Lab assay of single mutants.
Amino acid sequence: NQASVVANQLIPINTALTLAMMRSEVVTPVGIPAEDIPRLVSMQVNRAVPLGTTLMPDMVKGYA
């Protein structure tokens, strides 16, 4: 099963992502692949992401 990127904390809108904000977890539906975590660092979210939410490509500016 593919691990996805999950929010490790509440991430406010327009926040630049850091490693501490993300974790890898096997979830359904599948979100951004966990191997993309290094690429996500310093990218901004375009909405508030609650703790435990799977990051989807449309939630991260410049990812999709």
Rank of each mutant, 00 (worst) to 15 (best):
N1A: 15
N1T: 15
N1F: 15
Q2E: 15
Q2D: 15
Q2W: 11
Q2Y: 12
Q2M: 12
A3T: 11
A3H: 10
A3W: 06
S4I: 02
S4P: 01
S4D: 01
V5R: 00
V5Q: 00
V5F: 02
V5M: 02
V5I: 07
V6A: 04
V6E: 02
V6T: 12
A7G: 03
A7E: 00
A7Q: 01
A7K: 00
A7L: 04
A7H: 01
N8T: 10
N8K: 06
N8F: 13
Q9N: 10
Q9G: 05
Q9L: 15
Q9E: 15
Q9P: 01
L10I: 12
L10T: 13
L10R: 06
L10K: 06
I11R: 00
I11F: 02
I11P: 01
P12T: 09
I13V: 12
I13D: 12
I13P: 07
I13A: 12
I13Q: 06
I13L: 15
N14S: 05
N14I: 03
N14D: 13
N14F: 14
N14T: 06
T15W: 14
T15I: 06
T15N: 06
T15M: 10
T15G: 05
T15E: 09
T15F: 12
A16H: 07
A16T: 05
A16F: 11
L17T: 00
L17E: 01
T18D: 04
T18A: 11
T18L: 06
T18H: 06
T18V: 09
T18Q: 14
L19R: 07
L19H: 09
L19G: 04
L19W: 14
A20M: 12
A20R: 13
M21C: 03
M21H: 04
M21V: 05
M22L: 11
M22A: 00
M22W: 02
M22Q: 01
M22S: 01
R23E: 03
R23A: 04
R23S: 12
R23N: 05
R23M: 13
S24T: 14
E25K: 05
E25P: 01
E25T: 09
V26P: 10
V27H: 03
V27R: 07
V27A: 09
V27Q: 05
T28H: 06
T28D: 15
T28F: 05
P29D: 10
P29M: 07
P29S: 07
P29G: 05
P29Y: 10
V30Q: 09
V30T: 09
V30A: 08
V30W: 11
V30H: 12
G31R: 02
G31Y: 02
G31V: 02
G31S: 02
G31I: 01
G31C: 03
I32Q: 01
P33F: 08
P33H: 12
P33I: 12
P33M: 08
A34E: 14
A34S: 10
A34V: 11
A34K: 04
E35Q: 07
E35T: 14
E35P: 07
E35F: 06
E35L: 09
E35M: 04
E35Y: 06
D36F: 09
D36H: 08
D36W: 06
D36E: 14
I37T: 06
I37Y: 02
I37G: 06
I37W: 03
I37E: 03
I37K: 05
I37M: 14
P38G: 15
P38V: 12
P38K: 12
R39L: 09
R39T: 05
R39Y: 13
L40Q: 00
L40R: 00
L40W: 02
V41H: 07
V41D: 03
V41N: 05
V41S: 07
S42N: 07
S42P: 03
S42E: 07
S42K: 09
S42Q: 13
M43C: 03
M43Q: 07
M43I: 04
Q44W: 13
Q44D: 06
Q44A: 13
V45I: 09
V45Q: 00
V45C: 06
V45E: 00
V45A: 05
N46E: 08
N46M: 13
N46P: 03
N46G: 08
R47A: 09
R47Y: 14
R47H: 08
A48G: 09
A48L: 09
A48R: 11
V49R: 03
V49Y: 02
V49S: 02
V49N: 01
V49H: 02
P50F: 14
P50A: 10
P50C: 08
L51M: 14
T53S: 09
T53F: 13
T53M: 12
T54S: 04
L55C: 02
L55E: 01
L55N: 00
L55D: 01
M56I: 06
M56F: 10
M56N: 11
M56C: 07
P57A: 12
P57I: 07
P57R: 13
P57Q: 10
D58W: 14
D58P: 09
D58N: 13
D58G: 08
M59G: 03
V60W: 02
V60E: 00
V60N: 01
V60T: 02
V60M: 07
K61E: 10
K61I: 14
K61D: 04
K61T: 07
K61P: 07
G62A: 15
G62I: 04
G62C: 12
G62Y: 14
G62K: 08
G62S: 10
Y63K: 02
Y63A: 03
Y63T: 03
A64G: 12
A64M: 10
A64Y: 03
A64D: 14
A64T: 15
